[in-house]
C-alpha cells in the first residue's frame, strides 16, 4: 500500500519534471540553445494563473487558457527580443543570457507578487479518491491526466500538422529548411512560445501541491537532469526521465537517510552518464545541423 502511495506522488511529481524537461528539449532541438530559465517560466505561469484565478476570479478553465496564452506571448517576445540577436553567438553566451533571464524573471515575480507563498484556487482542491486505502488526490490525478493529454496533443501536433512537421524539418536540417522556404526564425519564436506554454501548464498543475513563490522555478534544475537522463533531444525521453527522477525521489525520501531525496535526481544523472551517456533515447548524435 505504502509503495503504491509513493508511486502516485512520485509519478505526479515526475510529470511536472517531465513537462519542464519537455520545454528544455523542444528549445534545444529547434535552436540548439539550452534555456536555463525554463523553471522560471513555469513559475511565471503559476503566478499568472494565480492572478487570473484568485485575483481576477476568472472561471478556472478561462484562467488556464489565459495563462497559456500569456506565457505563449512571453515566450515569443523573449525569443524575439533576447535570443534572436544571439543567433550565431557562442553557446556559452546564450547560456549566460538564459541564466540571467531566470534572475530577471524571479526579480519581476518578487516585485509584482511578493515573496510569501501563495496557493492557487482550483475547483478540484482537496478532493480524494480512496482506492482500498491508497489515497489518490484530485491534484495528483489532474497532474497525470493533464500531462498525458498535453503529450498526446504535442504528439499529434508534431506528427500530423504542417507546422509541426516543419518544426521537425527545421530541427533536422536548418539550412535545407531555409532553402525550401520555411520561415525558420519565426519557427524559433513559435517553439519558444510552445515551450513557455508547456511550462505554464506545469506551473498550473504543480501549484495546488507545492504553493507558488518566486523560487519555485528551481525545480527546473531537476527537470534539466531529467532531460539529460532522457537523452536530451528526445521528447518521450524527457517525460520518462522526469518520471524516473520523480519516483526515485519519493522512494529515496522514505528508505534512505534524510537529504538523499533531494540529491537523488543528480545521483540518477551521474549513474546514467556512466552507464548510458547517450540517455534513455539516444538522438543527440543523429542530429544534423
Amino acid at each position: 500500500m505504502e509503495i503504491l502511495q509513493l508511486l502516485i506522488s512520485g509519478i505526479s511529481q515526475g510529470c511536472v519534471y517531465g513537462l519542464i524537461a519537455l520545454g528544455f528539449v523542444l528549445i534545444y532541438k529547434a535552436t540548439e540553445m539550452v534555456n536555463f530559465a525554463q523553471g522560471d517560466l513555469m513559475m511565471m505561469g503559476a503566478f499568472f494563473a494565480y492572478t487570473y484565478a484568485n485575483v481576477l476570479e476568472f472561471p478556472f478553465v478561462i484562467a488556464v487558457l489565459a495563462t497559456i496564452a500569456t506565457m505563449a506571448l512571453i515566450g515569443v517576445i523573449t525569443e524575439r527580443l533576447l535570443l534572436r540577436p544571439m543567433i550565431g553567438e557562442p553557446h556559452f553566451s546564450v547560456l549566460m543570457l538564459t541564466i540571467g533571464l531566470g534572475f530577471i524573471l524571479r526579480a519581476i515575480a518578487g516585485a509584482s507578487w511578493g515573496n510569501e507563498p501563495r496557493s492557487l484556487n482550483t475547483p478540484y482542491a482537496g478532493g480524494v479518491i480512496d482506492l482500498n486505502g491508497v489515497i489518490l488526490g484530485y491534484e495528483n490525478l489532474v497532474i497525470m491526466i493533464g500531462t498525458a493529454l498535453l503529450c498526446a496533443l504535442l504528439y499529434c501536433f508534431f506528427r500530423f500538422t504542417r507546422l509541426g512537421i516543419a518544426m521537425q524539418a527545421a530541427s533536422q536540417n536548418q539550412l535545407a529548411a531555409f532553402y525550401v522556404g520555411i520561415p525558420v526564425k519565426r519557427i524559433y519564436a513559435i517553439v519558444w512560445g510552445i515551450s513557455a506554454s508547456i511550462s505554464a501548464v506545469a506551473g498550473i498543475l504543480v501549484a495546488p501541491v507545492s504553493l507558488i513563490d518566486p523560487q519555485m522555478g528551481f525545480i527546473g534544475i531537476k527537470a534539466f537532469a531529467a532531460a539529460i537522463v532522457g537523452g536530451f533531444g528526445s521528447l518521450p525521453g524527457a517525460i520518462l526521465g522526469g518520471l524516473l527522477i520523480g519516483v526515485v525521489e519519493q522512494f529515496a525520501g522514505l528508505y534512505l537517510p534524510t537529504g538523499f531525496s533531494d540529491v537523488s535526481a543528480y545521483i540518477i544523472l551521474l549513474i546514467m552518464l556512466l552507464i548510458r551517456p547517450q540517455g534513455i533515447f539516444a538522438t543527440m548524435q543523429q542530429k544534423k545541423v
Binding site: I165, A176, A177, V180, G181, K288
Partner: peptide, 22 residues
C-alpha cells in the same frame, strides 16, 4: 544544395510536402 541535405527523419513524402511549405 551540395550533398543532398534531405530531412533525414521525415518520410520521403513529408520531405516533398515540406518542399511545398510556402
Amino acid at each position: 544544395p551540395e550533398g543532398r541535405e534531405v530531412f533525414p527523419f521525415l518520410s520521403v513524402e513529408e520531405n516533398l510536402q515540406m518542399g511545398a511549405f510556402s
